[in-house]
Design a protein around this nucleic acid. Structure first.
Lengths: 344, 344
DNA sequence: AAGTAGCACTCGAATAAAGTGAGTGCTAAC
DNA sequence: GTTAGCACTCACTTTATTCGAGTGCTACTT
């Protein structure tokens, strides 16, 4: 059977209507409001074909049709682009330039959730090899040393370390110089066990302390995939969509958002090298918790392999057009922000 | 009318039964299982009295009785202590000693939520006047200065500041000395505008930079009540209690947990000077979102006026005994951890 | 051959009616 | 004071009924 133009138009009308109502769509509705000037009977015949082809399905006999995953897929792949209506862009999404990356990401998650009315997930940038920019040990009091590690992208980490003996200023200075001269500019792949051992030896009495600092450097620098920080917002939006707020579904989703574990895996799975916007419908996404949802993700880049992921989770009947548009706009903003950071 | 011993026993039986079943309790149930050896008719008479006195109520005629807020109140105030069964204490709640306070608090919220199966809220310690312990500016690159501020309780904050001109090591050292000698040991009440102005003047060309640092010092030191960090966990537990997972309620609760705004106010409202465990039943707590819940809070102290709050939110029929016990145990643990911190 | 009107049919959802049973209050007897 | 007994209440369950949106099929029109 052939998916001719008319069938496509009808399918588009069905999906469009279903997106906004969430109710199965009947032939009469399409006949009246699609502007195709066809009787409901004709529509019915076409619908019958579309169903046979697997693009739509009936929840039960004598109900209207709803899009199948395959139907949604066709929609986002081909139909959507054709009708990209001109809607005001997302430029009013204020991204105050936060000086801390984390705050900014949190803010992004929140803005996006408010704007789109869907739950959002933002994963912090991760890279296989962040480079160390700066290390500093400071004495806080007699027994506490504060280690501050800054890596590229100006991600700051600090760790309080207890020491047995008092360290003199001179000793601290020596350690600082040792650490900085050894590590600055190095990425995870360049920090070898050999190097670490050599430095520990050089540290002499302070091997323990230096060891702890190096641990921190390590975790700052290699941001292991699993450990990437993610920020979520708008989980409560699921209550706006009846099909998601049904008890079991809601529980799964809320749990996933709280635990973050599954989201983390999901986001990593979905980290896309091709740097484009991606749409996963239903089972296409590798996460049980959202198998009744769709997720749209964008990979943003802060340059030099520093990439993170932004995702919007919604019902399958989510407003793909606007979501995609919002993510595209966001991507541009993020890129420009990073450029600003660099130029200043 | 008199609340004699028998009435008390019956009330206790009603509440006990209701706590575990969540269903209205009938006279026959009490007659059979309470061990009082009274007929259902007698129980009915007593129940009628208890209802008149306001301790229990009927959802509708011909239903069993459920405890009223007043009944719960009496229960937690007097009945509960009498029957403190010996249940294994909460010593298996592992509190790995995290070196960062935040991680520890997060961990506490999580453990507690898992242990009790209720949502939990932990508010970071706040005090009107934390004292500054240490300030340090470091140059990260040509245009970025990292300011690290440590206050008592070893809370570390850092802020990245952009500067127009390159600062030499000597200048940085000078600023560091100026800041440390000026602020160390001071609390929020001692940092006056006069002092700030004087320092800014001394900073000369770097007034702007120093101003930003002072802002950070200010926010670190006075941890303004509203801004206290709170950690939540186990919000998904509400789905275990039908009366809370009903759509509207669930939405309110989940939103409250996500926004944190209302929780923050709540926790502040409930910060208790008397340092004891407190129970708020239903409307007793000043927060709309949890008006159908009870909340049990404990105030923990890390010494020197550094107090935080731990709260457990559950249905009114929550297991007060165990929750109170868990919080008491937690309190002891927290106190001892802090002592360890000090002695080391 | 493509489109349409018409009609019988389906089946979930909404509404109504009937039945069930846990629970009550009251009274009278022990 | 306690209890057995009984009539009564009322949410909940079950069953039956209706309703209507929507379908598939057939026959008629163009």
């Amino acid at each position: 059977m052939d998916l001719d133009d008319r069938k496509l138009k009808i399918l588009s009308a069905i999906i469009g209507t279903y997106l906004s109502t969430g109710e199965p769509v009947g032939s009469r509705t399409i006949s009246k409001y699609s502007g195709l000037n066809l009787s409901s009977a004709t529509i019915r015949n076409e619908m019958s074909d579309l169903e046979e082809m697997g693009f739509i399905l009936q929840p039960h006999t004598s109900a209207g049709r709803i899009p199948s995953d395959k139907g949604y897929r066709l929609y986002v792949d081909s139909i959507m682009q054709d009708k990209m209506r001109s809607i005001e862009a997302l430029n009013d999404m204020v991204l105050e330039k936060a000086d801390r990356l984390e705050e900014m990401l949190k803010h992004i998650a929140k803005s996006l959730a408010e704007k789109t009315e869907y739950p959002t997930v933002v994963a912090a940038p991760a890279t296989k090899s962040n480079k160390v920019k700066f290390i500093q040990l400071s004495r806080i009091d007699r027994i506490h040393i504060l280690a501050v590690v800054v890596v590229e992208g100006n991600i700051v980490r600090n760790k309080l370390i207890e020491v047995g003996d008092y360290l003199s200023d001179a000793e601290l200075l020596k350690l600082n110089m040792l650490l900085n001269s050894s590590f600055c500019g190095l990425g995870a792949d360049e920090i070898t066990l050999e190097l670490i051992n050599s430095i520990k030896t050089q540290a002499g009495d302070y091997e323990g302390l230096v060891g702890k600092v190096i641990d921190e450097v390590g975790s700052a620098v290699c941001q292991s995939k699993e450990g990437v920080k993610i920020f979520t917002s708008g989980a409560n939006n699921i209550f706006k969509y009846p099909e998601l707020s049904e008890h079991d579904n809601a529980m799964k989703l809320i749990s996933a958002f709280e635990e973050q574990q599954e989201l983390n895996e999901l986001v990593n799975e979905l980290r896309d090298e091709k740097n484009e916007i991606q749409i996963y419908i239903g089972d296409e996404a590798p996460a049980m918790a959202i198998k009744d949802c769709s997720i749209v993700t964008a990979t943003y880049s802060l340059g030099k392999g520093l990439t993170g992921t932004v995702g919007i989770i919604g019902p399958k009947r989510m407003d793909y057009e606007n979501v995609v548009r919002a993510l595209k706009a966001l991507k541009i903003q993020l890129n420009s922000i990073f450029k600003m950071d660099n130029e200043e």
